[in-house]
Structure formats: C-alpha cells, structure tokens
C-alpha cells in the first residue's frame, strides 16, 4: 500500500484537505494515502521534538491518525485538516510525557525513557545539525518544522508549536541570525585550532 504514497511538493496544486477527507470517508484509500504522505513526517517530527522515544512517538502518530479516522466525516473545518492533525499530535505528545512522568514517579529511580540523540542525516553537514540541536527549544523546534520535506504550511507549524501564525516569520529571522552567529563562531574556533 505504500506505493500509493505521493509526496507533497512545492509546485503541486494541492488537492484540498476537505476533498481528500470526503473521499477517504467513502473508503478511498488513495485519498487517505495522500493525506498520510502529506502529514506523516510532520506528525512524527512533532512527537520527536517533544523528546519522545521511537515507541512512544509511534503511539502518538497512530493515535492521531485513528482520531482523524473516527471523525473523518465530521471535522469542523476539513480544509484545515493539517492544522487539526498537528494540534492533536501536540496534545497527544504532551499527554504521553505526563503519563511517563507519572510512571517515573511510580518506578522511583527509573529514568524517563526519552529520545536518544538523533543522528545527523547521512551526507549532511554535522556542524549545522549540531548547531540546530544546541539552539534554545523555540528555535530548535521551529527550524526543524520549517525545513521539513514535505514542507508544512505556516498554519500547520503554528498549530504544532501553539504559536500565533504572525510570529512565525519574525521568529524564523531571529533564529536564522542566531544560527549564523553560532556557525560563524564555531568556524572561527576551528580556524584558530
């Protein structure tokens, strides 16, 4: 069934979410697979940026998709399905964290089972990835969402971060300036060494 997946691309005229949802509600698996292709990377990233390990992040993604299925024909604003998914994944990630903290209290010394360090992508510049990883949470999360493929819309990023859509642009500029400063000072350090 994975061969049904068509990845979102910038120059595509996107089929509106409401059209895909209506088709999926009627059992159209291609429409559903198009939604999965558009949003599974976003949902996975939202779960992982809450520091969840792979098993918990998988639960968050699956719960989020199942919750969409149960209201596939009754979403209030079907064309904003991406923002709805992002909000649901954020809530579910936070719920999972709370549950884990509660289990930690029960198990005493047992540490929270969180994401281990995510390895840099093969072929990518390690320095860039490590600089992003070292950034404050707000910048780290925003940059990870902004440069995802397929690229989320600002309304979806706003829902993922629970942030007003109008502050994404200014925060993006501030985070990119900060990243440049980090990379430049890192570069100078290496030159001296």
């Amino acid at each position: 069934m994975t061969d049904l997946i068509q990845r979102r691309s910038d120059d595509d005229e996107e089929v509106p979410g409401g059209v895909l949802l209506a088709a999926a509600a009627g059992g159209n698996e291609v429409a559903w697979a198009t939604l999965v292709a558009r949003y599974d990377r976003l949902l996975w990233t939202i779960a992982r940026m809450h520091d969840l390990d792979a098993e918990s992040a998988a639960d968050v993604c699956q719960t989020t998709w199942l919750r969409l299925v149960e209201r596939v024909d009754r979403l209030r604003d079907p064309d904003r399905v991406g923002a709805w998914l992002a909000t649901t994944a954020r809530h579910e990630s936070r719920r999972t964290l709370r549950k884990m903290m509660r289990e930690k209290a029960r198990n005493g010394a047992a540490a929270l089972n969180r994401a281990s360090d995510i390895a840099p992508a093969p072929g990518a510049d390690d320095a860039v990835w490590h600089a992003v990883a070292a950034m404050p949470e707000r910048c780290n999360r925003l940059l990870r969402l902004l440069f995802l493929t397929p690229q989320p819309r600002y309304s979806e990023i706003a829902a993922a971060l629970d942030m007003p859509i109008g502050s994404i642009g200014p925060t993006r500029s501030r985070c990119l300036r900060r990243l440049r400063t980090m990379l430049e000072s890192d570069g100078e350090g290496r030159d001296i060494a």
Partner: peptide, 19 residues
C-alpha cells in the same frame, strides 16, 4: 535544508500503521 531533511526519518512501520 540538507541537514534537516533526511534526519530522523519516519519508520516504515509508522507510515504503514497510518495507512
């Protein structure tokens, strides 16, 4: 974009469960 695109890919089992 290069650094963030390929990082931490969605496991195939997660996509299969979504489908």
């Amino acid at each position: 974009r290069t650094a963030l695109t390929g990082v931490d890919p969605v496991p195939g089992s997660v996509t299969a469960a979504a489908l």
